[in-house]
Structures are given as structure tokens and as C-alpha cells.
Design a protein around this nucleic acid. Structure first.
Lengths: 159, 159
DNA sequence: CTCCCACTTCAAGTAGACTTGAAGTCAAGC
DNA sequence: GCTTGACTTCAAGTCTACTTGAAGTGGGAG
């Protein structure tokens, strides 16, 4: 709301929860909730009040980004907090690789919806539910059982 | 579960809710819920029981896909059910274009997370929260206020 | 000194998307 | 005719991710 040059702020590297909230676009209540959920590390305190490093805004952005992608907070906590010494590195990598696979699938899914929507945009169908582009893949000249691209992507990538 | 050649099924083009459920990977309860929510058109009935065309599986896939992308059912209902005669076509197009923009932003967001995760995969940071790849963009030689790529994408595309 | 404001904790409420449970119906098989 | 199983409706419960409210605290401005 205000862009005043930090009149009552201690230092430029330290943010109050309110300042972090406006820096990140999240509400203070959400930030506290993330802390409770173990997603955000517990910050230092000055006379009881939370003090954050400015970097924390980036972290919050990443969290927001991930939740936006449908990732549960428990997974995000796993990604952010998993420590990795030499022993745990393999576990960490498997975790990240799994997430990368999920994200790749999500992108594929999004592109599928994008395609259907784009093709049906100028179609003359009465509603999207009856649009030929939604069902056409099935009708393609393919033997019997196997389903095709969009349908296939859904089955294979998402379920 | 079973791949029996439809012993007690009326016709091959007509599916019971249970059959549609196993064809689509959703639960029957979810299918009924979608109908209640106005996302799925009300099917015909034979002696009180729902009968679906096989195409409905595709529709369910699309719905599942969209919810997976974080799209609320109300939006999906809008996309699927909006009728478009010559008058309503413009409204329909604007609706679709809006959704296409959202999906494009989502894909960009997903690619941002993908990048951070990928870059930090082999990084030596102790936890992802402290990984340099998460914060490095800020540090790049850019005048003062404006934020950069990943951070920027988050701010610009998502909030 | 008092006021105000941003902060604190803790409990409870909310919204969306389903699931689950109870009680009843229908058609088929024995 | 009776049982069985998949279906029906409707109400209530669940889970996640927050938000909201109540009651209290700390510190700077007037």
C-alpha cells in the first residue's frame, strides 16, 4: 500500500512479516501458516516479532508457484527442507527427479488442454462438450484398443 | 478391473455410471458430483439409472485435466456449457482466450519451477531453501528496482 | 502517559472438491 | 420368491489451504 522509504524499519536486510507480505504478495496470515506447516523455516525474532531476510521473498514466490501447480504443501516441505549431506544426496535427487517428472506431465497436460481449447475456439460446435475436436482422436484409423494422443496423455500421464 | 466382453451390458455405445467410472478412472461419486455441479450434462436414464455415451469418457478426461491444472469447476462449467449461437460467439471467444492466457502463464510458471529444480538438483546447497539458484537472479547486474526472470515471471504472470 | 498500530497466539470458520453413509430401488440369477 | 449387486438420493463428513476473530504485547509519536 505504502512505498515510504522504510521510516521505522530497523535495517534494509531485515523485513517484518508485514513487509515480507507486501514484498511477496502473500498475506501475513499465509506466511505464518507456511511456517506452521513447516514449509517456511522459522525466522529470527526481535522482541517477539519475526524478522526475515529479503531472500525469503524469493522462497515465498517459489512456494506460491508450486502450490499454484497443485503441489501439496507436504511435498513442497519435502523439497525445501530435505537436508542433503553426502549420504542423503541420492534420496534428494530421486525426490527432485520425481517432481520433475510430475511437472513435465503437468506441462504436457496443460498443452493438451491448450490444444483442445485452441482448436475449438473457432469451431462451430454448440458447446465445447460436443465439439468434434474433443472426440476426434478416438476416431482416427487405429486398430482397436489403444487410445491416442490427448486421451492417451491423460490416461498415461495423469492417472 | 474386468475385461469381460459386456455380458450384462445393454449396448456397446451405452455405459452405466460404474462402467464410465472404470473407463475414465474417476469414481462414480465424482461423476455424480460433476453432474450436480453442472459440469457434466445430465445423461439419459433407463429405469432410473444413468446411461452415458462412450464419448463422455473423453469429456471426463478433459475435466480431470482441467481440475488438475487448478481450474475451478465453475470455470470448467463455463467453458463446457456456454452455448454459442452467432450472437454469443464473441463472448465464447473471449472466455477461451482468457483461459488460454491463464494456461500459458501456468506453463511458464511450471517451466520456472522446473528450471530451479533442475539447476539445484546437483547443487551442493544444504537445502533447496538456501540454494543459490533460487536467489541468484536478484543478484544479476540490473540497476535497482526491477526484478528478473524467475522472480519476474512469478510477479508478472501469477499474482 | 497514552494512543495507536503492527505485531503476537490460538481457535474457529470457510471454500472447493469430493467421499462416505444410510436407506431405498431395480433387474438378474438361483 | 429371495438374495445380490449395482444403482438411486440426500445429508453429512473430510481434507487442504488458508482466513478471520478475539485477546493480548511492544514500541514509537504526540
Amino acid at each position: 500500500m505504502n512505498t515510504k522509504p522504510a521510516p521505522s524499519t530497523p535495517a534494509s536486510t531485515s523485513l517484518s512479516i508485514g513487509e515480507l507480505a507486501s514484498a511477496s504478495g502473500l498475506r501475513a496470515s499465509a506466511i505464518r501458516y507456511y511456517e506452521d506447516a513447516g514449509v517456511l523455516p522459522k525466522p529470527s525474532r526481535i522482541s517477539g516479532q519475526r524478522r526475515y531476510h529479503a531472500d525469503t521473498a524469493d522462497l515465498l514466490m517459489l512456494i506460491r508457484f508450486c502450490t499454484r501447480l497443485g503441489m501439496p504443501l507436504s511435498d513442497i516441505r519435502g523439497l525445501l527442507a530435505t537436508p542433503r549431506g553426502p549420504r542423503a544426496k541420492e534420496h534428494w535427487r530421486r525426490l527432485v527427479d520425481g517432481k520433475l517428472d510430475e511437472i513435465a506431465a503437468l506441462i504436457k497436460a496443460a498443452q493438451g488442454v491448450e490444444r483442445v481449447l485452441h482448436e475449438s475456439r473457432d469451431c462451430d460446435c454448440v458447446t465445447l462438450a460436443s465439439c468434434r475436436f474433443l472426440h476426434e482422436e478416438r476416431a482416427k484409423p487405429r486398430p482397436s484398443r489403444s487410445r491416442l494422443s490427448f486421451h492417451d496423455a491423460l490416461q498415461a500421464e495423469l492417472i
